[in-house]
Simulated scan of single mutants.
Amino acid sequence: MTTADFTVVDTPIGPFTAIAAADGAVLAAGWTADAENLRQLIHSRLRPADLRRRDSLGAVSTAIIDYHGGDLTAIDAIPVRQHSGEFLTYAWEVLRKIPAGEPVTYTEYAALSGRPAATRAAANACARNAAALFVPCHRVLRIGGALGGFRWGLDAKRWLLDHEA
């Protein structure tokens, strides 16, 4: 893939950028206005050589706006494309099935991903997720409810969890 489209949407947390392939699948997304930095998060097999800014990415932009406006399921039908090994790919699919307002611990997430003893691997899946929001890694917490980490900052993670509660 040579060129992918991106857009920046204003949200209550700050600017949110999404990069999408020609077929509309999200390749990367997060609370930043720096599309080039976001492009670097995309696996080298999928990473576009160039980015083209658009005012809107259609359904992707609508989902971002609707989610932040209160429709917590708006992101569910948007296709996502990430590349990695078998476990990470499956773990990202599992993240998409964790319902809004029902966060899980890293230990619970590891079990849901089929590797109950692999809490660190589950945390790694969250850390390597390039498509934040659409693959909602913010829904995974430490035991006891501590936030843990989040590429886009703990204030953003807290806002998302409160928004979904």
Rank of each mutant, 00 (worst) to 15 (best):
A29G: 09
L141H: 01
G114L: 02
A118Q: 10
D34V: 10
Q82G: 01
L51H: 12
F134G: 04
A122Q: 07
G148P: 05
M1N: 13
F134I: 05
L88T: 00
F16A: 08
G85N: 02
R54F: 07
W152S: 10
I75K: 14
A118W: 15
A130P: 07
H83D: 12
R53S: 14
E93G: 12
R39Q: 15
L133C: 11
T89Q: 07
M1E: 13
N129R: 09
F16R: 03
R53G: 09
A4H: 09
N129M: 14
H43M: 03
S61Q: 08
A125Y: 11
I75R: 13
A21F: 07
A117C: 04
G58Q: 07
A21I: 00
N37V: 12
P79K: 03
I64D: 05
G148K: 10
F134W: 12
A74Q: 03
A21E: 13
L51C: 11
A29Q: 03
D50R: 15
T105Y: 06
I64L: 12
F134S: 00
G149H: 13
R81E: 09
V9G: 06
A118F: 13
Y106Q: 02
A33W: 12
D162E: 15
Y109I: 06
S84R: 10
H163A: 02
D162M: 13
S113P: 03
A49F: 09
G70S: 07
D76T: 15
A146K: 14
C126T: 13
R96F: 06
D23C: 05
C137G: 14
L51T: 14
A18F: 06
I78Y: 03
A33M: 12
N37R: 15
A125M: 10
L141D: 02
D55M: 09
G70F: 13
A77I: 07
G30R: 10
V80I: 10
D55L: 15
A132T: 04
G101V: 01
T32K: 09
G30Y: 09
G153V: 08
I64S: 12
W159C: 02
R45S: 14
N129E: 11
G24S: 02
T3N: 06
K157E: 03
D155H: 12
A122R: 01
V94A: 04
A74H: 11
I65Q: 13
F134V: 02
A20P: 02
A121I: 03
A28M: 01
G148L: 07
S44G: 14
G153E: 11
P116G: 04
L141E: 00
D155V: 06
S113W: 03
A22P: 05
A91Q: 04
L72P: 00
N129T: 15
